[in-house]
Design a protein around this nucleic acid. Structure first.
Lengths: 138, 138
DNA sequence: ATATATTTTGCAACGCTGTTGCATATTCAT
DNA sequence: ATGAATATGCAACAGCGTTGCAAAATATAT
């Protein structure tokens, strides 16, 4: 586990620091998406707000995590699958937000529906955000 | 035009004020979605920031406008169709954001794709956000 | 039409989120 | 172990959105 985190950082050409290891562990242990505030809480305020912002930004830039737009306008972050590389995200999967427990899921295994747009419009990226109740809360 | 705005406000049980008329006119004239900042600019700073926030919130509560989550986490607002009533929004249409001109379109006429979720998950609301290039910018 | 009650507005102040500059500390490469 | 490069923490700041309250505008009743 620790070793794989090490590998992730090294292949992304990032210094291996306590801080980054800790944040990546939080993502791996959680399984779901996390907000900046989640990380601040989960980490027990051991490191600075600013460091968390910069770390998350770095991870997004390097393709380690991706952002999820939410209806209440809080940014969520989740681990990217292997397909993502620096500067090239492939996160066109469906995001599911549970209205009961608040968890955000990346539904990677679900087929992405075909979205139609009018003539003259071209699609670059599609975000699908589903609100509902997850299997643990029903 | 002015009369229909009057009707919208009255049927929503809201006082008819210069402020609200002006903001509704901005939406009607624009045709596309507007952000708080857009309204502040377009109105020429004639009224207070706070008033705009409160007016938008009131309109959302009354089902006159709806919010659109965006990838860059700026809230956009757009006029609701007739189907929306106070507390019950029906805005499951596709939202399209042009990466060139920045306009946000509500694609009401486009069929909403069927989104599949895993067993045990139930859907309450679906937001589909498409980024690309609109017909005016291609 | 006027007076009264209700609603809306503007102002001031505040909290929260996210950013930047810079000095210090940590990590990396030799 | 040493120096160069990178990451961190602190302080300060900007922007977004909210709240409380007094003044103004609107609606209601007479």
């Amino acid at each position: 586990m620790k070793n794989s985190i090490n590998t992730i950082l090294k292949t992304s050409q990032l210094s291996v620091t306590t801080n980054r290891i800790k944040i990546l562990e939080l993502f791996q242990n959680s399984g779901n998406a996390l907000s900046h505030a989640d990380i601040e809480k989960l980490s027990g305020k051991h490191f600075d707000r600013v460091t968390i912002y910069r770390t998350l930004q770095t991870f997004v830039d390097k393709g380690i995590i991706h952002t999820i737009p939410t209806a209440d306008n809080s940014i969520m972050y989740a681990l990217c699958k292997e397909a993502c590389t620096s500067g090239h995200h492939h996160d066109d999967h469906v995001h599911f937000i549970c209205e009961v427990c608040g968890s955000t899921y990346c539904l990677d295994n679900i087929s992405l529906p075909q979205v139609n747009v009018p003539k003259g419009f071209s699609i670059n990226q599609t975000n699908i955000l589903v609100h509902g109740v997850c299997k643990n809360c029903k």
